[in-house]
Amino acid sequence: MKDDEIKKISDEEVEKLYDFTKKHFVYYYDLQVELVDHLANAIEEKWTEQPQLSFDDALKAEFKKFGIFGFTGIVEKRQLALQKKYNKILWGYFKEFFKLPKIMLTLALILFVVKAMQYIHPITAGVLALAILLFSIVRFFVLNRQYNKKVKKTGRRWMLEETIFRCGGISFIFFIPYNFIQSLFKDEYTVTAQWIMATAIVLFALYEYIILYVIISKAERLLNETYPEYAVLKQN
């Protein structure tokens, strides 16, 4: 090699970097991509100063910068960042149902539940809430099964998708506020109680719809835009 020739990471060394991240407990492909890109750039920078440095020695030197816990801190920070980003997206879609024109749909749904309680039976509210919960659980397990099949087929796990599935899997927690509201009023289904319970049910339904339908499609688009490999792997 000439002295003025800059060494570059080879395809074989890139694969070694992927294996290296896996051995250090980084299982998410989107995070592996980011770390491999970071390590590759750092190694090439070292080679500009020390061209005789071997790949393994350059990698060891760079990995030491991550401290005794290795990539653990990076993974945790990335998870928190994705959770924050996910919550922002979720809240953004949720707020749309309280702005024109979607607020009209929200109010219509609340009115529908109130009238159902008044003209059918107060227990209608509980039946609706339970139906939403059961449907959400089924939807979650269907999506989770599809995701696990994709992981098994491609050998790739995606942190953003699993962040969404973790949130989708806690649907039952949002059933607790309804039970709490119902216990406050017990059998006293006043007009005020009916409107409060109807609002709680509609909010629960909107949350489940956004998290199990809207956000899922948003995640795929986001991954397609950020990681071209995602679309390729999904088709295979």
Rank of each mutant, 00 (worst) to 15 (best):
L100I: 14
F135M: 02
E96W: 14
M159P: 12
L130P: 02
I120R: 01
L82M: 10
A108Y: 08
A131W: 02
G126H: 00
K102G: 07
E76W: 14
A81H: 07
L80D: 13
P177T: 08
L111I: 00
M117F: 11
L107H: 00
L111V: 09
A116E: 05
K115T: 12
N87E: 03
T163W: 08
K149P: 03
L128E: 01
L105W: 08
A131H: 01
R156A: 02
M117W: 00
L134D: 06
I176K: 05
L143I: 04
G168M: 05
G73R: 10
F172T: 11
N144D: 12
P101H: 07
I170K: 09
F69C: 04
R166E: 15
G126I: 03
G155F: 05
Y147A: 09
K77N: 15
L160P: 13
I173N: 03
V113K: 02
N148M: 11
A125D: 06
C167I: 13
V113R: 03
A116C: 04
T154R: 10
T106W: 01
K150W: 09
W158V: 02
M117T: 00
Q146P: 03
I89P: 01
T154P: 02
Q118L: 11
I173V: 10
A125E: 00
T163R: 13
G92N: 11
I74N: 07
T106Q: 02
I110C: 09
T163E: 14
L111W: 09
V151N: 04
L100N: 12
Y147P: 10
L90F: 12
E161L: 15
W158R: 01
A108D: 12
S171P: 00
Y147M: 10
R157S: 12
G73W: 01
I170R: 05
R157K: 14
M104F: 12
V151P: 08
N87Q: 11
P177Y: 09
